[in-house]
Every structure is written in C-alpha cells, then in structure tokens.
Design a binder for these strands. Structure first.
Lengths: 133, 133
DNA sequence: ATACAAGCTCAAGTCGACTTGAAGTCAATA
DNA sequence: TATTGACTTCAAGTCGACTTGAGCTTGTAT
C-alpha cells in the first residue's frame, strides 16, 4: 500500500503518517523509488494508536506499550495502564452522569445544585490520594 | 482564601491557578492589597475543571460548559458532551480489556493474537462513521 | 531596619503533537 | 516534451496548556 491509501483508510493525513513513522509508531516495509510502501497490517497498528490517543495516552506511552523493544513486552506496564484506565472509566461515568443531570437540572448554577455537587464529591472520593480534591 | 491555600488544597501550582483565572475558568472575589482572595467554592470549580481535563475536554470546552455566558447554560452542548463521553467510555472499556489480555497473552506480538485483533475490530465497529478504521 | 518568603504582572519559553512551507524527485498524461 | 500532481526531506511554525524568569511590592520574622 502507498501512503495515500493508508491515509484514506485511516483518515489520517499523510503528514501524520510520516510523523508517526519517524517516531517509530508505525513502519513502512520499504520503498518504491522514493515512496514509502506499507504493509496493510499498518492499519491495525493505526487503530491501536488512535485508540490509545483517544484514551488519553501519549505517543510515547503507546510506543512503550506496543512496540516490543526487547524479546518481551512490559506486562506490568500494560497491567498498570489497564488499572489507570479503570480509574478513568469510573471518572468518566460520573462525569457523564453529572453532565446528563446538569443538562436537565433547573438550578441557576451547577454549583447550587446539590445533586451535581454530590456527583463531584463522589468522584473526588474515588481518586486515590494523588490529589487532595 | 489566598492563592497558596487554594494551591495546597487543589494540588495545582499557583501559576496554574493564575492561568485559569486569566482564562476565566475560575474567579477571585477580590484583592487583599495586591493578593487575590478566593471564595472556598473555587475548590468545587477546580474539581470540575480537573475532572473535565481528565476526561479529555479542552479548557475552552469546560469554559463553555460551565461558565454560563448568558442567562442559561447550553443544555444541548452538555447533552452532546455526555454522549461523546459515552462513546469514549465504551472505547476505554475495550481498550482496558485489550490491555489486560495483552498483559497475559503469550502471542509473540499483539498483532498476531487473534483475540487482541478482535478487540481492536470491535472497537472500530463502535466508532460511528467519522473514521474509516 | 532589614531581609526574605510569597504575591504580583507581563513576556517569553517549553512540551507534545502535529502542520506547513520550500525545494526537489518522479510517473503519468496532455 | 512539458506540465501536473503525488510523493520526498528537512526546517520551521502552530496550538493548547502551562511554566519560568525578570523585576517589583508587601507582610512578617529576626
């Protein structure tokens, strides 16, 4: 596949694909003249990258998690990231509920609605001890 | 409250608090000489801001969602953001499951593990039609 | 009285993640 | 054959979200 096909399938601009290759997130399997040639499997890699980005991971995180830099991957890192995601999922659920409520609530300000404030505080409680909030 | 107290309670550096004030995300209720004075309720605002940031919202989004710029808030925006969050939550759940599996899986590469690839594709399917992946 | 920590403003710097621009290569088509 | 359009590299620019630094003011402790 050439870069424009990858771009069309993935929806990512070619500039981003080159950027990702430079960062080592994806790889081309060779060149046709000057032009990069990609294995179709790059699409799966890109899916994973987009997914990770969407989950709020940095490109470096993604790189560390999925580009085995030795004989084996870092299982602990993966498990740790899974745990982080779990925490985040809980927060997002609360946030979503808070938003849904706020969209329906008639209180003049969200901060004057006890239900909304309660949701905020529940979230606060769930967040270990990294912040005092 | 003075800025250092807000900083201690919130865990945010004073520079960030000033920055947020400048952006209109929080407000001080006055000055004591030169120094900003905050109402304790700023803590609730900061909770919400941190929560939003954690959910991947931009400061501008947060500002639009929670600083009523007219008599009424934008309920449609809130509901739309709630829907976005719902989508994101689904993705994060899949991602988390994928990571948990990858941490345990013995396949030489994640991309050679059918189960992992299946998870990726399930996610792909869930993502409306904004991207072709 | 003096020093010092903590605040202040405003401009500039940083970092991650890209994007854009200039300048060149190359295959295909008018 | 000449132009076009898609590709290439490499450097520089952009954007959001802060952070840092210089230079100044103030309240408190020695």
């Amino acid at each position: 596949m050439d870069i424009s096909k990858v771009s069309k399938i993935s929806g990512l601009p070619t500039s981003t694909l080159r950027f990702y290759e430079e960062k080592g997130l994806i790889h081309s399997i060779g060149r046709d003249g000057l032009r990069r040639v990609f294995n179709p499997s790059v699409i799966e890699h890109l899916k994973l990258i987009l997914l990770g980005r969407n989950a709020g991971l940095s490109l470096d995180d993604i790189n560390n998690m999925f580009t085995a830099k030795g004989p084996d991957i870092d299982r602990e890192l993966l498990a740790a990231k899974a745990d982080e995601l779990d925490k985040k999922i809980n927060e997002l659920v609360s946030m979503r509920d808070g938003l849904r409520h706020a969209a329906a609530c008639t209180a003049p300000s969200h901060f004057e609605c006890p239900k909304f404030l309660r949701l905020l505080n529940i979230i606060g409680k769930k967040r270990g001890n990294t912040s005092k909030l």
